[in-house]
Write a protein that binds this DNA or RNA. Structure first.
Lengths: 164, 164
DNA sequence: TTACAATGTTTTAAGTTTAAAATATTGGCG
DNA sequence: CGCCAATATTTTAAACTTAAAACATTGTAA
C-alpha cells in the first residue's frame, strides 16, 4: 500500500495496486473473500433465523465441545475479547439456549453448555449454514479445495510464527 | 457444522470437526487466518499510530484513488454500510485528514479526498503496514503466494456467482 | 497464615457496525 | 409542471467489540 502519489501521478485507478507488494495484494484478497462470505452468512442468519453471526459462532463452539467450555476457552476459540463473550453469554442464557454450570474444584470459572433447546435450535441453523457455505464455496474444484486448505495452513503457521 | 450429538455421542473433541463438510473446514480456516492478521494489524495500528483498522482502510481507499471517491464508492470498496462510512468520514474530517468537495452536477453527493496532511500521515502508516503484512505473510513461498492468489480469485468469483 | 502474583470472569467506557428509517436530490413520465 | 420512483447520504437504535479496570478465586511462598 505504498503511496507514491506525490512522485508518480496516476493515470489509471489501478496503478497504485500494481505497485503494492504481493503480500499486500494477497492480504487484501483474503480479506475480500472473508468479508464477502461473512456478509452473506450474516444476512441469511438474520433473515432466516433472526440471529447474528457472533451468536451462531458461540453456539457452534459449544456444539463442537459436548463436554462444555469455559468462558476463557470460548474467548480463545472465537478469537474475541473476554468481555465480548460475557455479553453474548448473558443474552444466550436469558434466551435459554445455554447454561452455566459451576465446576466443583474452581469457583472462578464454570462450564458453559448448550441446553437441549439450544442444541435443537443450533442443529436447525447449522444445517442451513452448511448449505450456504457449500453454495458459496462449492464452485471450487477438489484440487482448489485441497490446495487452499494446505496453503492456508501454512499461512496460519507462518502468522503464529511471526507473532513469536 | 453438522450437529449429530443426539445421534452419535462423541468420544473425541474433534469428532464433529471431522464430520464437517470440507467447505465448512475451508471457510473456518479462511476465517481464522483473516482474524489473526486483522488482530495483529489492529493492535499495531493502535499502538504505533493511535488509529484503527477502519480508519486506515478508509484512507487507503482514498490513497488508491487520486481523483477522490464518493461516500457510496467508499462504502462499496470497504464493504461496510453507508452509515459506517459516514461516521468514519466525520472523524477523519474533524482531524483534517480528508475533505469533502461538492460536485457541481449532483448536490446529493460529493467527492472525498485526502488532504495533504492526510496523504503525509497515510504514507507513514502505509510503510509500516506493508512491513507488518510482509512479516505476517512473508513466510510463504512464491509458489504458495501465486497459488493462493489464483485460488482466492476463483473463490471470489464463485461467491459473486453464487450470489447471482 | 498472610501477602501477593496469577488466573478467570465481568464491568465499564468508548468506539464500531449494522439495518432500517429519515432526509435530500435527481430524473423520468404523464 | 407535479408526482414519484430511484439514488446518495445521514441519522438512529440496537448490538457488537475492544482495552482496561475491577472483582473474585486460587496457588505459592515467605
Amino acid at each position: 500500500m505504498k503511496n507514491r502519489e506525490k512522485f508518480v501521478p496516476l493515470d489509471h485507478e489501478s496503478r497504485l495496486v500494481e505497485d503494492d507488494h504481493h503480500s499486500i495484494r494477497l492480504w487484501l484478497r483474503l480479506l475480500t473473500c472473508t468479508n464477502m462470505i461473512e456478509a452473506a452468512l450474516r444476512t441469511r442468519l438474520r433473515e432466516e433465523f433472526g440471529t447474528t453471526l457472533p451468536r451462531f459462532d458461540f453456539m457452534a463452539q459449544l456444539a463442537r465441545a459436548s463436554a462444555g467450555l469455559t468462558m476463557g476457552e470460548l474467548s480463545k476459540q472465537m478469537m474475541v475479547s473476554g468481555g465480548n463473550v460475557s455479553g453474548i453469554a448473558n443474552q444466550l442464557e436469558n434466551e435459554g439456549v445455554i447454561h452455566r454450570a459451576p465446576l466443583p474444584n474452581n469457583r472462578r470459572t464454570f462450564c458453559v453448555k448448550l441446553t437441549d433447546e439450544g442444541k435443537a435450535r443450533f442443529a436447525e441453523m447449522a444445517r442451513a449454514h452448511e448449505e450456504w457455505v457449500i453454495e458459496l464455496l462449492g464452485g471450487l474444484s477438489g484440487d482448489d479445495h485441497q490446495r487452499l486448505m494446505a496453503a492456508l495452513k501454512r499461512v496460519k503457521l507462518g502468522i503464529a510464527d511471526s507473532l513469536k
